[in-house]
């Protein structure tokens, strides 16, 4: 770690008080950032600890929930409103990392997690376009078991590691941002960028801008929702493929469907094509498989991750089948 300064912010105003230069970083639970600094993947001159900012979960006027950025993953997962109204979000959170890490990790930090690509982490030994723009990518042509089949580019195929964000993506969550001058809101779908030629830019977050919280809209379908994570061991591992899904069936047809995938793309992946293929259809295994095929038609394998295409297809079908229950 390069030496850095540290200060605690007890309010958003305080957090944004010092005109932050480009290397000042906000510190949440530290579960990712401290590791990245220690591995020299990232450097910072100054850390502003925002983990002690007020952390509340509040009802919004439209029947959704507001979640402060400093809310810990454990608290969010255990909140009975989340468990009752958005079970997929609880399940996604609870499938992530370990209890100790969930006790530390904040919602804001989770949104900004960086990839677990081993080449990204190997600072002395591997080239990475995400670390150094234009340096080249040693992952492509190397071990790609954990890499993306959707949304990747020639420059980067690293996956976004968060579970929470997959569920949030399916729920049309909106991120609230503040840089001290301007408050803005971005739908999660617009918050994350695809790598293209600039894999070092992962989000639309501006320099010095703080994630203050997220707004989860009301979603009737989410009452019947779940999250399934497929990984290399039964717990405490990152996803190979994960599926967040919510389904509302009315009069024998799918009235609302929310589907997002994790572990397969550089960002939490909203499966809009699959959703479109399912809307208004009668739930059936055939329909689920066709929808998965529609989503995965653009999938491209790098070799080591080719299994993710059939795995994603069958996991989507299994999860949707579970949600449809007797209706399918």
């Amino acid at each position: 770690m390069t030496p850095f300064s540290y200060r605690v912010a007890t309010s958003t105003t305080e957090a944004l008080a010092a005109a932050p230069d480009s290397s000042e970083r906000f510190l949440g639970g530290g579960t990712n950032l401290v590791d990245l600094l220690r591995q020299n993947v990232e450097q910072a001159d100054a850390l502003v600890d925002v983990s002690r900012l007020p952390a509340s979960i509040d009802e919004t006027e439209d029947g959704g929930l507001w979640v402060g950025a400093a809310v810990r993953n454990t608290a969010l997962a255990a909140d009975p409103r989340i468990g009752a109204r958005y079970p997929m979000l609880s399940r996604a959170l609870l499938s992530g990392a370990s209890a100790q890490i969930r006790n530390m990790a904040t919602v804001g930090g989770n949104l900004l997690q960086r990839t677990r690509c081993a080449y990204f982490y190997d600072v002395p030994g591997a080239r990475c376009n995400k670390r150094v723009s234009g340096a080249g990518c040693d992952a492509i042509g190397g071990f790609t078991r954990y890499h993306a089949i959707l949304g990747a580019s020639e420059q980067c195929a690293a996956t976004h590691p968060s579970d929470m964000c997959v569920a949030l993506m399916a729920l049309d969550t909106v991120v609230h941002l503040d840089d001290g001058n301007e408050k803005r809101r971005l739908p999660l779908s617009e918050f994350y960028r695809l790598p293209g030629n600039t894999p070092h830019f992962e989000t639309e977050l501006r320099t010095g801008e703080l994630v203050t919280g997220i707004q989860i809209p009301s979603c009737r379908a989410a009452v019947n929702s779940t999250y399934r994570k497929v990984r290399d061991r039964s717990s405490y591992a990152f996803a190979l493929v994960s599926v967040a899904a919510a389904m509302r069936v009315e009069n024998g047809v799918i009235a609302d469907i929310r589907l997002a995938l994790g572990g397969v793309a550089p960002r939490p992946w909203r499966a809009a094509k699959a959703e479109a293929a399912l809307a208004g259809r009668a739930p059936s295994q055939e329909a689920f498989r066709n929808a998965a095929d529609a989503e995965l038609a653009d999938a491209r394998a790098l070799g080591g991750n080719a299994f993710k295409i059939p795995l994603a297809r069958s996991t989507i079908a299994a999860v949707l089948g579970e949600l449809a229950g007797d209706a399918a």
Binding site: Y119, R233, S235, Y236
Partner: peptide
């Protein structure tokens, strides 16, 4: 080069 040089990438069994 060994690319599984961490307990995140090398999976020893966990309790579950």
């Amino acid at each position: 080069r060994i690319m599984s040089a961490s307990l995140t990438d090398y999976h020893v069994p966990v309790h579950l």
